[in-house]
Every structure is written in C-alpha cells, then in structure tokens.
Design a protein around this nucleic acid. Structure first.
Lengths: 219, 219
DNA sequence: ATAATAATTTAGATTAGTCTAAAAATTATT
DNA sequence: AATAATTTTTAGACTAATCTAAATTATTAT
C-alpha cells in the first residue's frame, strides 16, 4: 500500500491537473501541500520510481494511469465520507473537510463499499463534485474551468474551485447556480474578463478570477 | 496530539495492566506490539518525557492518569467503531478488528460523539467489553481475571481474553456464559486449577489456562 | 554468595519525510 | 544572444520510529 503522504501528493497532483492544465509544476505542488519545493522533488522521485507519475527533471509531472487510479480512489473515499458525515451524522458542510481528510486514508475495500451502499450509491456530493466509482472511473463528464472556454461556447455550471462563503454568496447574487446554463458572449482581451448570459437571460460581466473558480461541462 | 504509534503503545500498556497485573514489562509490550525490546525502551523514554507513563529503568511501567485517559479514549473509539461496523454496516464480528484499529486513530471529538449518538449510546460492545465514556471513564466495574480470585469468592462473568471460536465453544459446553455467577470452591495448589460452580449448579474443574482467559467482576 | 541466565538498555545504523542553503537548469528580459 | 530572474534540483542535516549487536542490570539456580 501507499503511505498517507504519497496518497496526499497524488491527490494534490490530480486536482492541480484537473484545474490548471495538463502538466503540474513542482512549485504548484509545494504550495498546495504547504511544503517546500525541495521536499516535493524528493517525493516526485519516489512516486516516479513507483510508476505512479511521469516525471522528468525540470519538466513537471503528470499522473500515470496507475497513479490516477490511486488519486481517484482517495477522492472517492473523501467524497463518500463527506456525504456520510452530512447525511447520517449531524455535520454541517463546513465541518466535514478536516475529518474527511483523515478518513479518506482508511484502508478497507469492504468499508467503503458498505458506506457507498449505506448512502444508496450517490453520484455527486453536495458541492456538485462527482464521486468516482469503485473502479476509479468518473461517471459524469469531467468539469473544466469556465476561463478555458471560448466565445460562443455554451456550458453547464457543475461546481466551484473556491468553496469560500464569500465566493458562494457572490455567485448567488449573480444568479449563477449548479446547473445554470452559461453562454460566453464575449471575451475581453486585455483582462480576460467575460461577458456571459445565465440561462439565456440578460448578460453580465465576470472577471477572469471569477471564471477561474467556476467549473463547467460543455453543453 | 499524539502519534498513532504513541497511541498504540498506550493502548497496549493499558490492556496489559488490565490483564496481567499492576506493572508491565518491556518484553511484554514488545510481544504485544510485535516489535523489539530495544524499540520499546526508546518509546518508553518518550512517553515518560511526555508524562504519559511512570517509568524507571528496569522497573517496568504504569500509566499516569493522563496516559490512562488517552488509552481509554482510544479504546472508546475502537469499540464504538466496532459497534458501528456491525450494527450499521454489514460487518461480521470477525471482520471488524483491522478496520477498527485504523479508525480508532481518527481525531475528531465531534465525529466520535455523533457516532455514539447514532448508536444510541451503547454501554458495552458485543464481546461484553465496556465502552468508556467521553471523559474516559468506565461506567462498568473493571473486570479482572478469574485466575486472580481466591477460595469462596463469588463473581460474575463479564468477558473473555481469548476470543477464539475454540475457546468460546468450550465455554458454551461448560455452561459458562456472560452474566454467569461463578463461585470458587477450591484452588488446586500444584497446577492452580479451579473447582467452581456455575449459577449454583454442580461443580466443575477448569484449568488455570482457562481461568486466565475469563474476565469477571466481584459480586 | 556467586555464577549462569534472562531481561533491559545503550550505541550506532536505517528509512520516510522534511528542511535550509547552495547549485544547476529553465525562462524571461533586454 | 547574453544576462537576469525564477524555478527546480542537489547536498547535507534533522526527527520519529525502527532495527541489530553489545553492554548492563536483574533474577534464578546452584
């Protein structure tokens, strides 16, 4: 099996690839893990030796299929535990994260299958994040950053990167919710801000910073 | 907080004191932890520095009140998780141990309180082992080995040390069950075997080996 | 009471994960 | 294209937990 630390690195790399792009830098990982670049380099060598990542010095990393499977399994466990805490115990959404970070490393196939059954096989968690299945496959189209789309693309809002109350309240006020249809009317060159319509309504402007925190799928 | 390893040592020491006597030897701990005596000595120094155990070179160890509290909290979590796995998920009793060994180290007061509530505040687990409360107190008299009692003592069977099917079946055939009243009629000097009556019935003989695996409370 | 045996501790090494400081490679700037 | 700035890697050290082998202390047997 893999150590807690290895699992956390793989999860961090997976999430960075999901959000930032195809290759992940040492510094990006260091920031996400709240550690130093030198420590990351050490770990990258180790994960590379174990064939969990593709790593060439100075060239950044990607996950191998094996590494991605491990990462998705951790994410599966994390999201199922979060669901369990909220649905079955009296946890609020802002209370679950730290505990789920611990529970995601518990090693027992039977346990996680039983939790899945107990929850009646949920497909997404309440953030709109999909729960990978037991084979480590996402049964829901993978979301991308709204900031990556181009003029006239139409997409559906599926989740957020920044889960802060401030940001969620801003989305609320702007009328952007899970499932909203977002059409990109215009991309302003100089600051990459977007003019969009929500559910075919009046158009509004959002900054590139905001667009980088909204996850969508192509319609 | 304490490391997983420290918690496991404290739990082992607690259980050895419960079963063996008042002071625990380095070798006994090494055996219980499946490690070497030298490693145990290192850890004993560390636990002693942290005031979790009373330790004098070559003299064995006892737990301080602080150490006992930690140990009881781990045991509380272990037993509550076992109950949860059996009662709420579809685990059999022989499947729970390994998973509970992992879950007992999850650090969240709220989580364990909610699990306790979810299970409706059980007092004992199905082995007859008591579940310590949130303050680390046992609300049930602490059990002792039947082998430690003397002639004419009367006690109540509360649990076993050896949980093997073979042993449980032997107890069954002998008519010894949880709650049985056991009276010591005679202790045979040369092999420490006992002549006892069960629920005031006909007397039977049990070996010292058997008596060392039966937990009782004084009536 | 002394020698033999057993238990325990010390000394020194090892591994995983981390760190700081310095070196090397890459990328950006002029 | 050369230099400056940034990123990444290496080198060497540290901590927690472990180990083996040797030394020390305690216990048992004669």
């Amino acid at each position: 099996m893999h150590s807690f630390t290895e699992e956390n690195y793989l999860k961090a790399i997976y999430k960075l690839i999901e959000q930032e792009g195809d290759v992940v830098s040492t510094n990006a990982i260091a920031e996400k893990m709240s550690t130093k670049a030198a420590s990351v380099t050490d770990m990258l060598k180790k994960l590379s030796d174990k064939k969990l990542i593709n790593y060439q010095k100075y060239q950044g990393v990607t996950l191998t299929p094996k590494g991605e499977k491990v990462a998705l399994n951790i994410i599966r466990k994390h999201r199922l535990w979060e669901m369990f805490l909220v649905e079955k115990l009296d946890f609020k959404w802002d209370e679950v994260h730290d505990v789920a970070e611990q529970l995601e490393h518990i090693n027992s196939d039977k346990l996680i299958e039983e939790i899945d059954k107990f929850l009646n096989y949920p497909k997404v968690d309440p953030h709109g994040d999909p729960i990978p299945d037991a084979k480590g496959k996402l049964n829901i189209p993978k979301s991308h950053l709204l900031s990556k789309f181009k003029k006239n693309d139409v997409c559906i809002m599926t989740g957020v990167v920044d889960h802060s109350t401030a940001f969620l309240q801003y989305l609320d006020r702007s009328g952007i919710a899970l499932g909203s249809e977002i059409k990109i009317k215009e991309i302003i060159e100089f600051d990459r801000s977007l003019q969009i319509t929500i559910n075919k309504g009046a158009s509004i402007f959002i900054s590139n910073d905001v667009a980088k925190n909204i996850l969508v799928i192509i319609k």
